[in-house]
Nucleic acid binder design. Structure first.
Lengths: 238, 238
DNA sequence: GTTGACAACATGTATAGACATCATGTATAT
DNA sequence: ATATACATGATGTCTATACATGTTGTCAAC
């Protein structure tokens, strides 16, 4: 079970990552890819457009699909990616220390957005890289839709549990990055110097049916923080 | 002159922004939109998918296209957007002070990416919001492809000049956000306190033909910095 | 040698149609 | 009343085709 255009995109992405296509190379033409995968042109084009959005290739009219020079660490960071996934795909071998897990009331607001769910599971986790605290994550998993969370999930991949065990479809999120002074308890956990601010990433994540399910605040040590993004120019802003 | 699917997307985006469709509403069905705009279904769907990528709507299978509740200031910030465009679309009425404009050698590297162009136009601009310095932009416009820059362009919109006057197609960029201690000259221009770090956004922007044309370093006062993003979960990371 | 016309091939845009899947209301059978 | 079955209309995926436009090499004319 798999959609054709996604499988083509997946396959080509793998081949680019494994350097079977090098930056500066052209991918096979759409016609050749159609024959190769046994699909129609529109389907092949859907896959190529997906890769272009991700910044893996650049489509040049009349010429072909050029493989771009994206360093490995450039692409997984933007978008919605769990720390565990990042850890795996970048080989960070970071350590996760679960500081708290309890149930309680859900926050009433995220910025100006009111939160409907009344209950939530609260998790606090410290991410340690090279024996140094790097990130403090505070998560509220909203109930509904998430009613229980087995004890060991927070230690491993939350997203894998939600997607694979509960069958939830994680779809989109809004994020906000600021730099702030944080309360002493948090500063202490991150081993910040006196008056040193933290990078605060607040995000609200939604399922495919538009139900919000997770509210996260991540506090990053500023010297460990790096956000890398690939963006295409969109022309729909009035 | 305009592509059908882009014009539909543009039109629907306008109507959403002007609240002719409210968050929680469904857009007309694809079939109705086809009749309304006199287009085929695939063309209409291209427009809707574009809006979904931008976070303006959520498509629900079997139901329709739901208008999401995105605050105005949520969407223009991500992607590639010039300060001038942001200023206009958010009504910041910021002030731009051009500190320097000169020609010289281009930097040799951007991170690990080597830069081919030898010459460049260097511009330094201070963005002032509410009488307070907020951002210091240092731009290198690479030569080629940009050989000259009229004196008053830096004061207004650089991107409008490049796109409309020179006919260049600005297409994509890579960005990197970090928090760093900056050199005293820069700290002074931003009126930073002693040892106060700045948010540094480094970006390399490209034309549609993959030519890099601009190398920007933006230094933000941390208390004025806010990065807002809408992201969809992509599943192509192995 | 340079230019120009042309063919071959690439991607870009748009259309029409088929079939699958999901949501929902309605009518029927129990 | 409840449950089942079905029809309807929505979006999702895929195919086949046509034509437009950009790129490049070739070959002929000058």
């Amino acid at each position: 079970m798999g959609l054709k255009h996604e499988m083509i995109a997946q396959d080509l992405a793998e081949k680019i990552k494994h350097q079977q296509f090098l930056p500066g190379d052209f991918l096979p033409s759409e016609k050749q890819l159609c024959e190769l995968y046994g699909t129609s042109r529109e389907t092949t084009r859907k896959a190529l457009n997906h890769l272009a959005e991700l910044g893996l290739i650049q489509k040049l009219k009349g010429k072909g699909s050029l493989v771009l020079d994206i360093q490995k660490y450039t692409f997984p960071i933007s978008g919605i990616t769990s720390f565990q996934e990042l850890n795996d795909s970048l080989g960070l071998h970071a350590q996760t220390k679960v500081l708290q897990q309890k149930t309680g009331a859900a926050p009433k607001y995220f910025g100006q957005t009111p939160i409907e769910a009344k209950k939530a599971i609260f998790i606090e986790r410290l991410r340690i890289i090279d024996q140094q605290p790097a990130v403090l994550d505070q998560d509220y998993l909203l109930d509904p839709p998430i009613t229980v969370l087995p004890k060991d999930v927070a230690q491993h991949s939350l997203y894998a549990y939600l997607e694979n065990e509960l069958g939830l479809e994680i779809d989109y999120a809004t994020k906000e990055i600021t730099v702030e002074q944080v309360e002493p308890a948090i500063a202490e956990k991150l081993a910040l110097k006196a008056n040193e601010p933290a990078v605060v990433v607040r995000s609200l994540s939604y399922l495919a049916d538009t139900t919000p399910f997770q509210l996260t605040t991540s506090y990053h040590r500023p010297d460990k923080f790096k956000f890398i993004d690939f963006a295409r120019r969109k022309k729909l802003n009035h």
